[in-house]
């Protein structure tokens, strides 16, 4: 039993899997994995590895393939007993209900919240704030030397919305979002680390937990996200998927630097 973390909520490590037409894409490379595209198999591996949650991000374009995701969630939730978040393409409270009934614990709403903010309020009232995550893709729009300002973007960072990211996060939590998934579009895919100023600005502005996302390239980035960015959870994809680091290594590293983390039972 770890003593130092006994009295505290631990910071969560969340591997994120991109799913297209029911298959995990951008390859996950676990040693000896039989099927690198099978969401159930990969979720099972992350469960065994001691991940604190898993997030599935549906990048499917067609609505037919969205139905496939519902079945994926059903299968994963039948075999893996850990918190599961599903995002991507959620447009209505009916979509939220379908994912929750399939076994998701939390549902991420992104573009639809911008188009129709009341959707967040309705979903939170109907299903509870605890299962409504508002996903925000933010980009820095202030010039060099100017006070930092970030704007909310859609369509993979291509389309500006005119919304200030910090204000938007605060508004969404007022509407009932129970958590904010904050992705820096400037850092996503760069492996240069989270946008810490953005993460801290949002985290300090909202009363609900914030998941930092976008840019993780090494384990120090995870520590920085928590200690400097004030994030409650850190989301990462490639550093885990490609086997560079295990979740256990990430937790060892974070714990050694004063971040409270959970040790899975197996490791004791």
């Amino acid at each position: 039993m770890t003593d130092t973390t006994l009295d505290s909520l631990t910071k969560r490590i969340i591997p994120c899997l991109d799913v297209d037409a029911g298959r995990v894409v951008k390859g996950v490379k676990f040693v000896d994995i039989r099927d690198a595209g099978d969401p159930v198999e990969i979720a099972r591996r992350y469960d065994a590895a001691g991940a604190d949650e898993i997030t599935f991000l549906d990048i499917t374009a067609s609505s037919d393939d969205r139905e496939t995701l519902v079945h994926v969630v059903e299968q994963v939730a039948s075999e893996v007993f850990m918190p599961l978040t599903v995002g991507g393409g959620i447009r209505s409270t009916a979509d939220v209900r379908r994912m929750l009934n399939a076994g998701a614990d939390k549902v991420g709403i992104n573009t639809a919240a911008i188009r129709e903010p009341e959707l967040v309020r309705q979903a939170a009232e109907r299903f509870g704030s605890q299962c409504i995550v508002v996903a925000i893709d933010a980009k820095r729009v202030s010039g060099e030397g100017k006070p930092a300002r970030w704007e909310v973007f859609t369509h993979g960072g291509r389309k500006p919305t005119g919304l200030d990211a910090v204000e938007w996060a605060a508004r969404m939590s007022e509407y009932g979002a129970g958590e904010i998934l904050l992705t820096s579009m400037d850092r996503d895919g760069t492996r240069e680390g989270f946008d810490l100023a953005l993460t801290r600005a949002v985290s300090d502005a909202v009363p609900v937990p914030v998941i930092a996302s976008g840019g993780v390239g090494n384990l120090q980035h995870l520590v920085d996200g928590v200690l400097e960015g004030h994030a409650d959870a850190v989301l990462a994809a490639s550093i885990f998927h490609f086997g560079e680091f295990t979740v256990a290594e990430a937790k060892d590293y974070m714990a050694a630097r004063g971040v409270p983390v959970r040790r899975p039972w197996e490791a004791e």
């Binding site: 505290s8 909520l9 704030s129 605890q130 129970g178 937990p209």
Partner: peptide, 12 residues
């Protein structure tokens, strides 16, 4: 407050 509300995550 030790952190955010809702309390969301793993606690001993």
């Amino acid at each position: 407050a030790p952190g955010k509300v809702p309390l969301m995550g793993w606690v001993p």
